[in-house]
Design a protein around this nucleic acid. Sequence first.
DNA 1: CATCATTTTTGACTGCAGTCAGTTTATGCG
DNA 2: CGCATAAACTGACTGCAGTCAAAAATGATG
Lengths: 217, 217
Amino acid sequence: MAGTAVRKSEAGSETPADTAPGRRERNKLQKRQRIVMAARELFQRQGFADTTTQQIAAAADIGTGTLFLYAKSKEDLLVMVFKDEMLATVRAIYASLPEAATPAEKLMSVFGQMADYHARDAELSRVLLRELVTPSSSERIGEISELMDAIFGGLTGIVASGMPDEGGNAALIARSAFALYYFQLISWLGGAFDRTRCMHLLRDQLAHLMSREASHD
Amino acid sequence: MAGTAVRKSEAGSETPADTAPGRRERNKLQKRQRIVMAARELFQRQGFADTTTQQIAAAADIGTGTLFLYAKSKEDLLVMVFKDEMLATVRAIYASLPEAATPAEKLMSVFGQMADYHARDAELSRVLLRELVTPSSSERIGEISELMDAIFGGLTGIVASGMPDEGGNAALIARSAFALYYFQLISWLGGAFDRTRCMHLLRDQLAHLMSREASHD
DNA sequence: CATCATTTTTGACTGCAGTCAGTTTATGCG
DNA sequence: CGCATAAACTGACTGCAGTCAAAAATGATG
């Protein structure tokens, strides 16, 4: 085991100052950071299935028991690792949308970029998707909701921009649009169809969904 | 795989009894039946998590190794158990639809009854849903496709009945309708909202999806 | 500093899904 | 039959996620 030793190395010349947020809490944050970094590194390099929790614990320089104080399960670790990144990605996608475009085009742009993100690592995305579908730890439901809210918020804005007068059901349509995307994502990652096929289906479905609003004006 | 089937010649004059499908094959079927029955019994009585593969093997009166010759994984067993039942349920639902009803009403009837089915055992449905989303064994993809095709076929018929002239995108709309149902099912089983809320959302989404066809007449 | 209380860490341990080398059973053929 | 070969079966075994009783670290008090 390479994990032994070097535990209390930074004990020398301990700076007793700046304990404002409480030393305990700070250490906890550092440890969480270390865990997340170690998990990300290993998951990306070896894949989810081929990474053991022992490896992650060793890389984070903690015992296996400690690891499970910070994450409820191995899947939980994956959510910890990618939730923030996905949130940032989603926000970046929304921030860089083309101004002059129909709502349907904007939606396709958003979903296309999200698919790009998932295409980077299909295995991790598949496991992540499984967790989003049926969260194993109830504590993750909150985090997942946060992500969903961010996505829905952006989508609702896009949908509403195409129907200036009656924005009452913009949220409903946005939810529908996301449901259609989600189902195609599942079809693709689950192996039913390839990515191109799914994106084409999605485009057609969105066109139909939005057509009533478009022909409204 | 079963590709080596029916190599036994019925011209042989050995066993006097009916050896039409081959004794080996028959035994195999019996064994598969026993496994499925044992698994169903235990899953329903104890739940998925609290049932061990050892218990299932013992109940089916076979060794643990044999069990995994018939199912690739514990989740696989669940699909084996419930696929046929779900297929039959879906067909029964389609067979008993009210004649005089709008397509939207028919859709809600179908999805409502499907939800009833899942409501019977939420834990098993959740695991099953996870397998439908990302099948762990690629061999199940075919079985799942069969189920999906049955569902899509019925939905397409319902949708097409509401738009007599242009049935070209009935399949597309049916797929959209199912995607909306699927997403609400996930929201419900995943713990985001309760069942009533999800079914209401679904009704509104379907109303919007079908409204263009309805106002067509 | 000594003592105690509380929080945090730990790694040996448990239980289970899934495997595999070895065994048994079925089938083909002279 | 008897032998050979292939298929089916088996349960002891492996590896890993997750647990828990004990230990270490931290902090508080006099």
